[in-house]
Every structure is written in structure tokens, then in C-alpha cells.
Amino acid sequence: EEAIQNFKALLSDMVRSSDVSWSDTRRTLRKDHRWESGSLLEREEKEKLFNEHIEALTK
């Protein structure tokens, strides 16, 4: 649960536009030290959280 919250915070800070792809964003996020705290999450979970974040940005 904490890993999810940390990853959501990372997305909020780093992803402000809804027209970015997961693969491009992932490359950028990996450069942030907080990426490692999400290592407990599966890749699919990270992508799902990313997609939810993008959906929220479009509303």
C-alpha cells in the first residue's frame, strides 16, 4: 500500500500531461530516486496506476 502511494505521488509530480505514453514516461520516471520505492510493485500494477493517473488528468 505504501509503495502504491509513493508511486502515485511520483506520477503526480512528474506526469502533468495526458498525451504521454507509458514507455516514454517510464524512462523519465526511472531517473527519479523514488522509482526504486516502487520496486515492490509489479510492472503491470505500475502501468495500471499510470493509466488511472492519465484518466484523471483528462477529466
Rank of each mutant, 00 (worst) to 15 (best):
T25K: 05
H53M: 00
R30D: 07
N51Q: 12
K31F: 08
H33T: 05
S18R: 07
L10Y: 02
S17G: 05
K31L: 12
R26D: 12
R43I: 15
L29S: 01
I54W: 01
K8S: 00
T28W: 10
T28C: 12
S37M: 12
V15Q: 00
D32Q: 07
E2M: 04
E1R: 06
E2H: 02
T28D: 12
S39M: 12
E47C: 00
R34Y: 01
D19Y: 03
V15T: 03
F50D: 03
D24S: 08
A3R: 09
T28V: 14
L11V: 03
E52N: 03
A56G: 14
E44A: 12
K59N: 08
R26L: 15
R27C: 11
K31H: 13
E52P: 01
K46E: 13
S12N: 14
R26G: 06
K46A: 15
R43H: 15
F50S: 04
E44W: 09
D13Q: 08
S18Y: 07
R43F: 13
W22G: 06
L11C: 01
F50N: 02
D13Y: 00
F7D: 01
R34K: 03
F50C: 02
R30S: 14
I4S: 06
I4E: 07
D13E: 12
E44R: 10
V15M: 00
R30C: 15
K46V: 05
S39Y: 08
R16V: 11
D19E: 11
D19M: 03
L29M: 10
A56L: 11
S39T: 10
T58K: 15
S17C: 10
E55W: 03
H53T: 04
A3T: 06
I4D: 03
N51V: 04
F7Q: 05
S18F: 05
E47K: 09
S21I: 03
K59H: 15
E44H: 15
L10N: 04
R16Y: 05
E52S: 06
K8R: 12
N51K: 08
S21W: 00
S12Q: 12
R43L: 15
R43N: 15
S37K: 12
T25C: 14
E42G: 15
R27Q: 14
D24T: 10
L10I: 06
L29D: 00
K59R: 13
H53E: 01
H33D: 04
E55H: 06
S39W: 10
K8D: 00
W22P: 05
S12W: 05
L29T: 04
M14D: 04
L10S: 03
I4L: 05
R43M: 15
R16P: 10
H33R: 14
D19V: 02
S39A: 14
S17M: 05
R43P: 15
N51R: 10
V20F: 02
N51W: 04
L41Q: 05
E1W: 01
S23L: 07
N6T: 12
G38Q: 10
K59C: 13
V15G: 00
A9Q: 11
S18D: 12
L41A: 03
L49E: 00
D24N: 08
T58W: 01
L41D: 07
L41I: 12
L29W: 01
R34M: 04
Q5T: 12
R16C: 09
K46C: 11
D13R: 02
H53S: 01
E47S: 02
V20W: 03
A9Y: 05
S17F: 03
R26S: 15
H33V: 15
F7Y: 03
I54T: 08
E2F: 03
D24Y: 02
R27M: 11
R26Q: 15
K46P: 07
A9W: 01
E55C: 08
S39H: 11
L11F: 00
S21G: 07
G38R: 07
D32Y: 00
D19A: 07
E55L: 10
W22L: 02
V15I: 09
R27F: 07
R26F: 14
T58L: 02
W22H: 08
E1L: 05
K48P: 03
